[in-house]
Each structure stands twice: as C-alpha cells, then as structure tokens.
Design a protein around this nucleic acid. Sequence first.
DNA 1: ACTTAATTAGTAATGATTCCTATTATTATT
DNA 2: AATAATAATAGGAATCATTACTAATTAAGT
Lengths: 125, 125
Amino acid sequence: MRFSHQRESIQSIVYSTNSHPTADWVFQKAKKVVPNISLGTVYRNLKQLEDVGLIKTIYDGNIARYDWNQAPHDHLKCKECGELIDIELIDDDVRRKVKNKYQFEVDDVKMVIIGTCHKHKNKGK
Amino acid sequence: MRFSHQRESIQSIVYSTNSHPTADWVFQKAKKVVPNISLGTVYRNLKQLEDVGLIKTIYDGNIARYDWNQAPHDHLKCKECGELIDIELIDDDVRRKVKNKYQFEVDDVKMVIIGTCHKHKNKGK
DNA sequence: ACTTAATTAGTAATGATTCCTATTATTATT
DNA sequence: AATAATAATAGGAATCATTACTAATTAAGT
Ligand SMILES: [Mn+2]
Ligand SMILES: [Mn+2]
Ligand SMILES: [Zn+2]
Ligand SMILES: [Zn+2]
C-alpha cells in the first residue's frame, strides 16, 4: 500500500474525532483538504485502513461508522440524539462465560447499550 | 390494524424459524402462499409486526433480520457460516454496571458474540 | 348492500455502498 | 533526472436494501 494524500487526510479526519463519523461525514471534511476527492475514494480508503488495522468499522443500524479507537470498548447509543458514545466496561467475564457455557470459539464481543446520554437530563417525567 | 392474509403469512413465516430471516427470505417463502405478494408488502408488514411487538428487528452488519423471539437474549454471529444463533447469557450485571458507573438511562443492552459455531469443529489448527 | 379507510401490488425513488475505467501519481530502477 | 511498473484516483454507473407513491382491492362496521 503506497502513500496517498487522500488516505492521509481520511485517516487524520477519522483520528480527529470521537464521534464515530460516517463515510459521508468524512467525505465532507476531506473535500476541504482535497477538493475533488470522490466518495468512492473515501470508502476504498476507509476499508484499506480497516484492513491494516488502523481503524474499526461499527455498524450503527444500517449505516457504517468508523472508529479510530482500537482499544476494546463498547458503545452507548443515545436514542434521543442518536450519538454513539464510547464506554469502557468490558466484561471479560462475558468472554469466559460463553466459552464455558457453549464451547464456542469467541473472537469478540460487541455490545451496544441503548439508552439516553447525559445531555438529556430531566427529560422524561 | 385489520386482518390481512399477507400479514398472517408473514408472521407465521417469521415464527416458523430460528434462523433470523431477512426480508427477502421471508418474501421468497411468502410467495409460495400468496403468489403475487410484493416485497414492499413484506417490509411494510414486518415493520407493523415490530410496532405491535410481535417480532424484533436485528441489524446484522447492514442488513435487517427478524426474530420472533421476544425473550431478552443475545446472539452469536458465526464468522464461518454467517449464521446468527440465539444465546441466553444476559448479564443483568451489565445493566447495573452502566447505570452505576455513568448514570445513563439504560433501556436495552444488545450483545453480539463474534465467533465460530459448533458446526465447524476441528477447523483451525 | 354501502361506505370507509386500511392494505395491497407494482413500480419508482432513495440512500448507502461497491464496481468500473481511463487517467494520474507514487515508488523503484536505471 | 528520466523511465517503467502499477497502485490509487475521480467520476460515474451499478448494485443492494429499503422506502415511498398510487390506483385498485379488500376487510369490517353500518
Ligand atoms: Mn468507539
Ligand atoms: Mn434471536
Ligand atoms: Zn443524547
Ligand atoms: Zn457456523
């Protein structure tokens, strides 16, 4: 894989935010640096970056989001504002439990907490 | 919501399998009962059935799958054959932990275990 | 039977993502 | 620095899942 300005930009854009951006969000940002970059290039590079292990893909409903954070962690999906927020709570327990209870080969445990984030205090009730 | 043969069929098809079928799979089956049912009807009814709480939608990557099983449970996604298999391990712990640690309103915890199902014993190594 | 509105089939439209291809840019080699 | 080999790109077409639209049909209450 050889150097490209496009890929550099795309990577640094993903690394610049904690918002788990979509391909299109990255595309909009990237255009400010590489004006006539194409959406296909963004997708292709995001995939490459994932293949090399520089970013991770998170499927949020039916849309792909990208995460620079390689550390094993989970996410809170706020049903008020839709944001996807990092949380670390890692049950290494879970891994063990499944392994013991079902003899499955466990590679990863993906957890999404559906709830309401701190921005919406005193709403319901 | 009034009666329709289409909806009846669609519901019974979803209820007939543990495979977490896609809309298209349901569509293929449904055609055998209602030959000129349309895919749109399948989608519309799946959504209605979900609204009424008769089925649940699971997003598997970027494709929707449907589950008759209302009981809180999690899934194993087999990376060999792609199947989505029910598992019950429900950490009610998790719910408590998040609540205590972050003061989030937690509505649901969705967990997907990525791994290899029993059909692929003695594969790797 | 008559009326009303929900539901449908069929098809067009959408949105996200992937694929295709002629051109361009990077990198290694002279 | 020029040359060659080929990875990467822009732009657009194509695909896939899903939703929207609409005239015709149908369930259900009177
Ligand atoms: Mn994250
Ligand atoms: Mn299930
Ligand atoms: Zn929020
Ligand atoms: Zn399997």
